[in-house]
C-alpha cells in the first residue's frame, strides 16, 4: 500500500503540469455550470462537447510532432482537407457512409505520412516543411470545394452530435427506453468518440517501441540514435498519427456542420490554437515531455474559457482581448521555472 502511494506521489510530482491542467479544467467547468442558467444539464454538456471535438482532435494531432521537438503547421490544413472530402463522400447507403469515413480518415493519414517522409528523407525542418505542405493541403481542399457547402447524411449528423439515447434511437439498435440504459443514455456521443480515440489509439501507441522512441527523440535525439531506437520510423509514425487525428477532427466537423468549408483563415486559426492547447495541456514545446491526453485537457480548458463569454456579461468587443490575455498569461505561467533555476546555464537550450 505504501508502495502504491509513493508511486502515485511520484507520478503526481512528475506530471505536475498535467494534473494542474485537469484541476483547472474541473474547476473552470464546475463554476461555468454554476453560473449557467441551465447548468448541470445534459443539453449544455452536449452542446459544449460538440463545439470542442474539432479543436481537441487538432490538439492531439499537434502533440505528437511536438513531442519529437518538432511542430506541425499543417494540422489545420489537413483538417480542412478532410472536412471538404467528408462533405463529398459521407452520404448515401450505410455502406457508402462507412466507406466515405474511411476514405476521409485515410486521406488525412496519408497526408501525414507524406509529411513524415518529407521530414525524414528530405531532412527538412518540420516547421517549414509542414508550412509548405499545409499550403498544398488547403489548395487541394479548395479544388474539392471552391465554395462552402456539401452534403452529409442527416441521420449520422443527428446521431453523432447528440446523446447516446438519440444514437441508439436513430439506428434502432435496441429499445432505447430500456431501464438499464437510462443511467448512461445521457452521455454525449462526441465525448465518447473523443475518449475512445484518445484512449484507444493514443495510449496503446504510446506504449509501443515507436511511441517511446518519439519521447526519446524529443529528449535527446543523439542518445536515442546511439541506443539503436528506430528514429526514422518514429518520426514518420508521429506525423502520420498527427494526420490521422487531424482527419478525425475534419470528419467530425463535416458531420457536425453537414458541410465542408475550405477556409484558409480558419485552418490557420485552428493550427495556432492547437499549439496553444498543447502548451496549456503541459506538453513542452522543446519535446520529450507531455502527451495527447494532456492536450485534450488543454484544448478543453481553452474552449471552456471561451464558453464563459456567453454567460458572463462582457462587452463582445472585449472578448478577443480577454481570450488573448488568458492565452498569454497561461503560457507565461511556465516562466516561474526561471525563478527556481539555480544554474543560469540551464535556462539556455
Amino acid at each position: 500500500m505504501a508502495d502504491k502511494r509513493s508511486a502515485l506521489a511520484t507520478n503526481m510530482r512528475q506530471n505536475v503540469a498535467f494534473y494542474s491542467a485537469i484541476a483547472m479544467l474541473v474547476a473552470l467547468y464546475l463554476v461555468y455550470n454554476m453560473l449557467h442558467p441551465r447548468g448541470f444539464s445534459a443539453a449544455v454538456l452536449i452542446q459544449n462537447s460538440n463545439e470542442s471535438v474539432a479543436i481537441v482532435f487538432l490538439a492531439m494531432a499537434q502533440t505528437v510532432p511536438v513531442l519529437l521537438g518538432g511542430l506541425d503547421l499543417s494540422v489545420g490544413a489537413i483538417m480542412t482537407l478532410a472536412n471538404c472530402i467528408a462533405s463529398e463522400v459521407v452520404n448515401g447507403s450505410p455502406l457508402q457512409i462507412v466507406l466515405g469515413m474511411i476514405i476521409t480518415l485515410a486521406t488525412g493519414t496519408a497526408f501525414g505520412l507524406v509529411n513524415g517522409l518529407i521530414v525524414v528523407y528530405g531532412r527538412l525542418q518540420p516547421i517549414i516543411a509542414t508550412l509548405a505542405t499545409g499550403a498544398v493541403a488547403v489548395g487541394l481542399a479548395l479544388f474539392i470545394r471552391p465554395v462552402p457547402g456539401g452534403n452529409v447524411d442527416d441521420d449520422i449528423s443527428w446521431a453523432l452530435t447528440n446523446d447516446l439515447y438519440e444514437f441508439v434511437d436513430t439506428y434502432g439498435l435496441f429499445d432505447a427506453d430500456a431501464g438499464w440504459f437510462q443511467t448512461i443514455s445521457w452521455i454525449p456521443v462526441p465525448l465518447l468518440i473523443v475518449v475512445m480515440i484518445a484512449f484507444g489509439v493514443w495510449l496503446p501507441f504510446k506504449r509501443t517501441v515507436t511511441g517511446r522512441t518519439i519521447y526519446a527523440i524529443g529528449s535527446a535525439e543523439g542518445a536515442a540514435y546511439m541506443s539503436g531506437l528506430p528514429i526514422d520510423r518514429a518520426k514518420i509514425a508521429a506525423f502520420t498519427l498527427a494526420g490521422f487525428f487531424a482527419a478525425c477532427g475534419g470528419l467530425y466537423l463535416a458531420i457536425q456542420t453537414s458541410s465542408g468549408n475550405a477556409d484558409i483563415t480558419q485552418a490557420g486559426a485552428y493550427t495556432l490554437n492547437s499549439i496553444a492547447a498543447v502548451v496549456v495541456g503541459g506538453t513542452s514545446l522543446l519535446g520529450g515531455v507531455g502527451g495527447a491526453i494532456g492536450s485534450l485537457v488543454g484544448a478543453l480548458i481553452l474552449r471552456v474559457i471561451s464558453f464563459y463569454f456567453r454567460i458572463v456579461s462582457i462587452d463582445p468587443l472585449l472578448q478577443p482581448l480577454v481570450e488573448g490575455l488568458v492565452l498569454l498569461v497561461a503560457v507565461s505561467l511556465g516562466a516561474f521555472r526561471t525563478l527556481r533555476v539555480k544554474n543560469q546555464l540551464n535556462l539556455f537550450r
Binding site: 527538412l124 493541403a137 484558409i264
Partner: peptide, 13 residues
Amino acid sequence: EAGRQVIYGSVII
C-alpha cells in the same frame, strides 16, 4: 486560389 496554394507549397518544398 486552389492551384496557387498547391504550387506555392510545392515550390517551397
